[in-house]
Amino acid sequence: MKKRFGIPWLTILAYVVFVFTMIPLVVVVLSVFTTTDYPIFPPIGFSWKWWISAFQNESLVRSFSLSLGLAAATAVASTTLGTLAAMAIVRYRFIGRDLISTFLTSPLILPAVLIGVGLLQFYVLVGVRASFYTLWIGHIIITVPYVMRLVSVSLAGFDRNLELAARNLGASALQTFWRITFPIILSGIVAGFAFAFIISMDDVTVTVFLTNPQIVTLPMRIFAQWEYWNYPYISAAGSWMIFFAAIVMVVIERTVGLGKVFGVELERK
């Protein structure tokens, strides 16, 4: 494409949309620095006091550590379960394979409210009280499909001759897995872990049905205080979430590449 036919409005529009995309994030992060007693953008003056008060706010810190713990526990469980399931489904042909595959990825198709309502009513039905574990199971259910997808992608482009060679050279099945298979699909597993972590951390639609006053994740804390949002430390809590999202983004970019996760080839061929 040597000849560039300029459509300046396209570039302008694109930059306007990029700015629009970043507005809510930038606003939240900057509004923490206000000196006023209410959050405002643009911030008035500059101070760190709301950052400090956010860290001193016990309920906010408790919610944040709950969110981190829950996200970590969810990511560990989902990555393990999802990786094993993806191996079974990509590698083997067996009766009911398509059915099981559809079943395990169906949480993506079901409206999230339906999953939330369903879990709440089921827990009530069997008489289980809301706890960290019931919420954890809910988060596992909504994150397993993502892990399966990501691991499946890395398994699909896998040269199975490498495994056969290892077995031929005398490695046991387990050795072959740990020394050959695992390192090759590791990038998919790491991306799945990161995805599960952030989805668990961000979710409100399922979580809203499974919390109780003792178990309030950070997004739920902000959600519940929506009517009384007049405290800049909510901006601080939002900034923590944005910070973790940024970390996850870097992890994904460094492992499988963000473009690949989202099915887009970013380098020009």
Partner: peptide, 8 residues
């Protein structure tokens, strides 16, 4: 980037 930040 906004995709990974909670809707709230």
């Amino acid at each position: 980037s906004p995709l990974l930040v909670t809707v709230v």
